[in-house]
Design a protein around this nucleic acid. Structure first.
Lengths: 336, 336
DNA sequence: ATTAGCATTCAAATAATGGGAGTGCTAAAG
DNA sequence: CTTTAGCACTCCCATTATTTGAATGCTAAT
């Protein structure tokens, strides 16, 4: 591809992103100072190479997936770390009052607004954090609350019914034992450890009621395994011209409601991942691009922010923005 | 309205609910054993009375809001408590293993599936429950977790950073005081009481750091005020013929995403409330009916289940179903 | 290598057409 | 007084033409 062809490709992408209409040769005449015929010739070559496409025989050109890919790899990647125009985001991260999780949420809200796309935050999985405290709080004569707290400040609770003939003192002993046993155990190992200890220590005798109570504890623990997520801005996207097709729109909403969207969010990649159109495995998402950016939290845990939008999106602005956000969220973790 | 007119109205509603097409006079000939001309005359009267409408000069008839209203008041309300065909639901409530909140969630899922509508559960507002315990759990050298637990077993937490020069013993005293002060206080009164006590008791001296810490507590308390809700089945509705209009569809999704839907859910009504079409105040919902059914929990607190669907919905089946569900959810609370 | 010129293609908007389902009204029959 | 057959009329909707215009590819001249 010659330098001029590359410029034309770039112009086509930029224009198309703005207008959502196929780009004709005349549109570029002013910028390039050559005749429309010359541009048509070049466009013909670019089409043969697979970077652009026509929507019908006599239409203007539209970037193909390969075209977007080229655009991203050569044009966007060579951008210096852009941080211009991220003013609102800077403001956000300068606010030291707000708690980290809340800040991430706000950043995701802002991201979806600023891009008119759907934004998703996939929190670090609490599964690898450690038990800090196990607690039983009576809340009425026959009900109590099981509380499990981890070193990251995550809390899960489960309400249980206490049968009348349960001895309270005994229960307290059980809790003490559980604490002794489980503090500093990673959530992922709790179930295993609990079952082992019950078999091999004197806790066994204490746990007459273990069937119900220990099960309830295990259930509370298992709640941590659920990934915390936040998704916002689905309605933004609906107004994009690519969703004028009612069928596509319905499928998109279904995909989100059924949580299928999480299948195509890349959470195990270093840096920024861009999946364009059919690079996504879900059929209803094959006109969309998914951009994911990961950040490190603690103990090798990763969090992800993702952006789902039409393939026709402003990569030049969005990709640096995603980098920027991940970097700053990571910084929030480092500061602690 | 004569008996025959009432029968015709009922038939029009029933047929229209099934077919989503305007009903012509010929359609009813087989059922009524009179000629289509007679039926046309009767339909003319029903139209004059405002119970049915035409979509254009020579179209069949469609129920008006007034028509649906009449149908519900006279035909549905006179049904004996129908419980036929609620087989799956019965099965659900017979399962004594599952926790109450989980059971409600499952019922809502099933409800939305069975009706192809959007179903919503609005949990009892924790705002009126009472503080059971206030707690501070250290999770690292400079971080702690504020925990607030209510008599209903609701838990909210907030992570705070502890500055190095804070005396731990002092902090413990503060917590003890807070407990003493706040236990059994309704969440709704906490903020007020807290501010009052700070002004008038010796706690003032203890709270050198109150700006940050007390504020964090208040924030944790205020989280209870947020109503717990569960919403499901928005994608079901999208396939209903009334959402063939892309603009309506977009508005509907936006309304849900912005939580505006909660504005039209009736949570302070006894029994079943049915809001048809323009009886709803939100513009984007004026082709929808919202059915809400409340249940009592404890201490005068109410929970609500709601169903949002096109005005053309199977009231005959849905209204008894909503009654049935609310009754059974209430029973779950009574059993405790 | 570039470009003016021209026939060609196709989408999208607008207009014309015909069929069909349904209505209201009238006048006759029950 | 109620019912009904008959008929003119209305309007939607799907189909088919017609027009317009923006774009293309190709050719031949610069």
């Amino acid at each position: 591809m010659t330098k001029r062809q590359e410029i034309i490709l770039k112009l086509i992408v930029d224009e198309y992103v703005k207008s959502a209409e196929p780009i004709g040769s005349k549109t570029l005449v002013d910028v390039l100072n050559v005749s429309s015929a010359t541009i048509r010739n070049e466009m013909g070559i670019l089409e043969d190479l697979g970077y652009i496409e026509k929507t019908h025989t006599s239409s203007g050109r539209v970037p193909s997936e390969k075209g977007y890919r080229y655009y991203i790899e050569t044009i966007v990647k060579n951008l210096d770390e852009e941080t211009d125009g991220f003013f609102e985001f800077e403001e956000l991260f300068n606010n030291k009052e707000t708690a980290r999780d809340e800040l991430i949420k706000e950043a995701i809200d802002l991201l979806s607004q600023a891009t008119n796309c759907t934004a998703i935050s996939l929190g670090p999985n609490a599964y690898h954090s450690k038990v800090k405290k196990v607690q039983l709080v009576p809340i009425s004569s026959h009900q109590a609350l099981i509380l499990v707290i981890t070193n990251f400040g995550y809390v899960e609770s489960k309400q249980i019914n206490i049968h009348e003939d349960i001895d309270t003192d005994e229960l307290i002993k059980v809790i003490d034992l559980l604490n002794e046993m489980l503090v500093d155990t990673p959530i992922s190992k709790v179930s295993e450890k609990l079952h082992y200890e019950i078999q091999h220590s004197h806790i066994k005798e204490l746990l007459k009621y273990r069937e119900t109570i220990v099960d309830s504890f295990i259930e509370a623990f298992s709640k941590f395994a659920q990934t915390k997520y936040y998704l916002t801005g689905q309605s933004n996207m609906l107004y994009q011209p690519e969703f004028n097709d009612i069928q596509k729109l319905r499928e998109f909403i279904s995909t989100i409601e059924n949580n299928e969207i999480f299948k195509i969010v890349e959470s195990d990649v270093e840096g920024v991942s861009v999946k364009i159109g059919t690079e996504n495995q879900i059929t209803s998402m094959q006109d969309c691009t998914v951009i994911s950016s990961t950040y490190d939290t603690v103990d090798g845990e990763k969090g992800t922010i993702s952006l789902v939008g039409p393939t026709r999106m402003d990569y030049r602005r969005v990709i640096p923005l995603m980098k920027y956000l991940a970097k700053h969220i990571q910084k929030l973790y480092e500061e602690e």
